[in-house]
Simulated assay, not measured.
Amino acid sequence: MNYYDALKRSGKILEAYFEQSKDILHSGSKGTIRENILNKVIRPFLPSCYGLSGGEAFDKNGNVSKQLDLVVYDNMFSYLIPYIENFIQFPCESIYGNIEIKSYLNQAEFISSIENIQSLKILSREGTHSWTVTPQVQITINGLPRDTGRNPYFGIIFAYDSVEVETVLNYFRNVHIPANLLPNAIVLYSKKIIIIHCKDVQIEIFPCNDFDKYKALKCGDDTLALFIGLLINFTRHSLLKAADIPKETLSLFQNLLAQNPGAETEISINRT
């Protein structure tokens, strides 16, 4: 047995759980669906080094994302700002990606999800490279390596129910934003469909921008297992670099020093 065989078995248990809960889930409560997906589907399968919370992200240029349903972030090394329960403000450097959760995906919810994912992916952060050890430690030798594309954001839409698959695909005809800001995958749970990046006949299971179409795949009872597998691939691929808080802190203190230049605010110390 390999990992995915075991994951498929667990996926069938999750499918059964969702079927038992469908009356509650069909009530249309986004909060209920979010908690079920978070606590039953995602959290048990991701190591504790990956945090999960709602919130918003910001970059060093002052840009702020829209409110994001479920942020996947580094829970070990990176920095964050707890705000209220289940809502955190994140330096964008701390984030792997986000999942927009919908009880029913129609055109309005589709556009809302696209805009939320775009608002994260557009945030500016320094790229990482293949010699990134932890978000706080990166190795360079004689200026190498020079690759800086190892921390792309990912964005997923998870819809418990939805309009027909063809209708969802047609929604893209009215979306006019760069491909790198679009979702990496859309899970239509009730339809047992995952819509995913594809280039020619190659499925893109890593968060890259080198794709030319979306492909709707019939996943059947493996839908949740494949969703978890995608999430594992997306997080494992990314090597984050923590926000440079020491640099920002030093800059703040230097500004304060410039504002308090007088002798009355200092005292000399004899070091002998």
Results as ranks from 00 to 15, higher is better:
37 I>H: 04
39 N>V: 04
39 N>K: 10
39 N>F: 10
40 K>W: 11
41 V>H: 02
41 V>T: 11
42 I>S: 05
44 P>R: 09
46 L>W: 07
48 S>V: 13
48 S>L: 11
50 Y>R: 04
52 L>F: 04
52 L>V: 03
53 S>P: 01
53 S>H: 07
54 G>N: 07
55 G>V: 06
55 G>D: 03
56 E>N: 02
56 E>S: 08
56 E>W: 01
56 E>F: 11
57 A>E: 04
58 F>L: 07
58 F>E: 00
58 F>T: 00
58 F>M: 01
58 F>H: 02
58 F>C: 00
59 D>A: 00
60 K>F: 06
60 K>Q: 03
60 K>T: 09
61 N>D: 05
61 N>F: 07
61 N>S: 00
61 N>W: 02
62 G>V: 04
62 G>R: 02
62 G>F: 01
63 N>T: 07
63 N>G: 01
65 S>A: 09
67 Q>N: 15
67 Q>W: 06
68 L>E: 04
68 L>D: 03
69 D>W: 12
70 L>G: 07
70 L>Q: 09
71 V>A: 07
72 V>W: 03
74 D>S: 10
74 D>M: 09
74 D>T: 10
75 N>E: 10
77 F>K: 14
77 F>E: 15
77 F>V: 10
78 S>D: 15
78 S>G: 12
78 S>V: 08
78 S>A: 15
78 S>N: 15
79 Y>P: 06
79 Y>G: 06
81 I>M: 15
82 P>G: 11
82 P>T: 13
82 P>F: 12
82 P>H: 13
82 P>M: 10
83 Y>I: 15
83 Y>H: 15
84 I>S: 15
85 E>N: 12
85 E>T: 13
85 E>C: 03
86 N>L: 10
86 N>G: 10
86 N>P: 04
89 Q>L: 13
90 F>T: 10
91 P>H: 09
91 P>E: 11
91 P>F: 05
92 C>Q: 04
93 E>K: 07
93 E>Q: 14
93 E>M: 08
94 S>D: 05
95 I>M: 06
97 G>W: 07
97 G>H: 10
99 I>M: 13
100 E>V: 09
101 I>W: 01
101 I>G: 00
102 K>I: 01
102 K>Y: 02
102 K>R: 09
103 S>N: 08
103 S>Q: 03
103 S>D: 06
